[in-house]
Nucleic acid binder design. Structure first.
Lengths: 231, 231
DNA sequence: TTCGCTGAGATAGTATACAATCTTTGAATC
DNA sequence: GATTCAAAGATTGTATACTATCTCAGCGAA
């Protein structure tokens, strides 16, 4: 995940904003004024601007000239393309891992899913994030950092899509499917792992309806995400 | 290819630098001091910094804290990963296009290769760039912008790899292979198209030795790339 | 000679001031 | 009452000034 971070300060802002978006604390379309954010983090607009530039490159933020930055709102067409791309990439991941999993790798996956189970139902936002990070972890285990980065990007943007078009994140089934994927990978059953992944991603893509929640206060969200908790 | 460009000025610097890197006018490891670049383009460091940030996100530039930006020098391991990823993505492109090519699409490809033939042997740098853009055009024809963006990124970074590890760019064979790929796609022969693409990419990846050229003058290079010729 | 220190120069990191642009509010007119 | 224009406010775009850090040359001591 981690590129050579340019500077620690803007990296911190970048991380915090990214997390807030991924946990759907900042909903698509939310305005991201530079000075409001800078004020919250105690940095100047210069720093914020760098973070926003990077987020834009990742597709999590859209900026309009002279209008500023907004949390990206994927169109239906974009959503379709992102799901397609994610599907393609994750098939590649499965193909590379099936039957080739190291013991430490399997342990790491197990540990992650255990963590998912621990917060299931308790902390919605964290649960959403962990579900995505399972797929990123999987991609990282291939050893190909580029592949992992692309998967991470697609997972992030899927989170955005679900925030726009999705119903509630039903994490119950997801966790069990994650276990099944691990099992199939351990057994070297590439076909089965692929099938489960297809179903899993299909399920994710399936949740596509319209919902509208209340607009949360930007400052209060940022106050929560300011402290850089690593978990 | 084109995201929502933040601001025209930094976008221009970004394009120019990118082009210079892709045409190997700026070789890997070249230092990219902010004020030297800013001076050349008549903009402040602020603008240059934005451009460099974007280039870093694309993997074309690496920055070291308090040391500044350099044209990225891919390690052998990165090179391997990039070729793997490119291979995976381009297979996806072929799979989607085989037998589904529209007439305008085929025309566009033909026109591009014709352009490649026109500059073959005459303008080395442009020839390198056009060869890469053939693959990007192919990816764009799938209609999936994300896929196209990723292919574009991999093509760019391959260009960087060849600049470090490659021998001379033998564009002669490449152009003919491009024609063959078009033919196979037109005939709907997915297997053949895939095989040619495999061979083609294998040939690209195959050129891996060590070379070292003379260091060109940064200012003179930028002077050439300052004028934003669109072709 | 070599090693280490010190200070000058250069360059990136950051904040801020100012300019340009957009949005919005309010009033005047139809 | 609706519409249009204008001015004020807000926010982004850009340049620049200042600070922190790194690099390297020069000098002195072992």
């Amino acid at each position: 995940m981690s590129e050579t971070t340019a500077t620690p300060r803007s990296a911190a802002v970048h991380r915090a904003l990214r997390r807030a978006v991924l946990e759907q604390a900042l909903k698509p379309g939310t305005r991201l004024p530079e000075d409001t954010i800078g004020e919250q983090f105690g940095v100047s607009r210069t720093i914020v601007r760098q973070a926003l530039t990077r987020l834009e490159a990742e597709g999590l933020v859209e900026t309009l000239p002279n209008r500023g930055a907004f949390v990206a709102t994927p169109s239906l067409e974009e959503a379709r393309q992102i799901f397609e791309m994610r599907h393609c990439l994750e098939r590649e991941v499965i193909a590379r891992l099936a039957g080739q999993m190291s013991l430490p790798g399997l342990d790491a996956l197990d540990a992650h899913v255990t963590q998912e189970e621990r917060v299931r139902g308790k902390d919605g936002p964290v649960s959403i994030r962990l579900a995505g990070e399972f797929h990123i972890l999987l991609a990282e285990l291939t050893g190909n950092g580029i592949l992992a980065r692309y998967v991470a990007e697609m997972v992030s943007r899927c989170s955005l899509i679900l925030a726009v078009y999705g119903r509630t994140h039903s994490s119950d089934c997801a966790v069990e499917e994650h276990r099944e994927i691990i099992r199939a990978l351990r057994d070297g059953d590439a076909e089965k792992a692929m099938a489960i992944m297809d179903a899993h991603l299909g399920a994710v893509a399936g949740r596509a309806e319209l919902t509208a929640g209340p607009e949360p206060d930007l400052a209060s969200v940022l106050a929560r995400y300011g402290r850089d908790q690593t978990p």
